[in-house]
Computed example of a mutant assay.
Amino acid sequence: MRRLLSAVAVTGFLLAGVPAITSAQGLPGLTLFSGVKSENQLSYRLDFGGQTRDWDRYRLRIPGKKLKMAVEKFVIAYPDYYDGEFDTGEIEIKVGSKTTKLAKDEVKWDKQGKVLELYPKEAIPAGKSVELQLSNTRNPDFPGTFYFNCLIQSPGDKTALTRYVGTWIISIN
């Protein structure tokens, strides 16, 4: 009888965990060993599941507490082994809790340097949460974990210094 109860308990636990695992696709999970300190890990969402060779929408989030200075330029640096593609005409910058769209002035994609540069029309005030929405993005051809680093440039920087904000650790299945 005791064995039967143990088997039922273990089976129930395993079955209860399955929906939680499948519904979490496209969201960052628990990262134990990444080399990136937990306070530097940024949140993201992949709207269409993050499957290889599929089209997706990346929602790269930056909390307001990470933006201690106003922002006039976002730089997203990604690894050289990421072979996905971005549609620069389908990138939006959303600011604050109301997710107000800002008209983007310009988006530059340096394919050789593996960098996306986003220039909002107006500087984004310090302390505002931001979502960089990369729509119509083609995921890479092979699964893996990709570290996208976020850097910012503030208005009035005389030396055009970019500052590290954090890293999105993106998993593609």
Rank of each mutant, 00 (worst) to 15 (best):
E85N: 08
G35W: 13
R57D: 12
D47P: 06
S34K: 05
T100M: 12
E39T: 05
V107Y: 03
L118F: 07
E85F: 13
K37A: 15
K98G: 07
G50L: 01
T88R: 12
D80G: 08
V115P: 03
Q41W: 09
A70V: 02
K73L: 07
K101I: 02
L27W: 09
I93H: 00
I76G: 00
R57H: 09
K66S: 06
T99C: 06
R57V: 14
L118W: 01
L118N: 01
I93G: 02
F74S: 00
K68E: 12
Y81R: 09
D54V: 07
L118H: 00
S38H: 04
E39S: 09
K111F: 03
E39V: 04
G96A: 05
Q41H: 11
K68V: 11
P79T: 02
R59P: 06
L46D: 10
Q25V: 04
L60S: 01
S97R: 09
V107K: 10
S43P: 11
E85K: 11
W109A: 13
R57S: 14
W109L: 15
L46F: 13
G50D: 03
F86Y: 14
Q51A: 13
V36N: 01
Y58V: 00
K94F: 04
Y78K: 02
G89Y: 06
R61Y: 15
Q41M: 12
G84P: 01
V95H: 01
P63V: 04
T52Q: 08
R53M: 12
V75I: 10
I93F: 01
F86N: 05
V71D: 01
K65G: 04
V71S: 01
V107L: 10
P63T: 06
K101W: 08
V95E: 04
T88M: 09
M69G: 01
N40P: 06
E72T: 03
Y44P: 08
D105Q: 10
Y58M: 04
E92Y: 08
L60T: 03
V95L: 08
F86V: 08
G50E: 01
F86R: 06
Y81L: 09
E92M: 07
Q112N: 15
V95C: 04
K101N: 11
G35V: 03
G49T: 07
E39R: 03
I91P: 06
G89C: 02
P28T: 01
M69C: 05
S38A: 12
Q41E: 08
A77W: 04
V95M: 06
I62A: 04
Q25I: 04
L102Y: 05
T31L: 10
S43I: 10
W109E: 15
T31H: 11
Y58S: 01
V115I: 11
Y82M: 02
T100S: 11
A77T: 11
L116P: 05
D56L: 07
R57M: 12
G26F: 02
G113W: 11
D56T: 07
E106D: 11
Q112G: 15
Y82H: 02
K37G: 10
G29F: 06
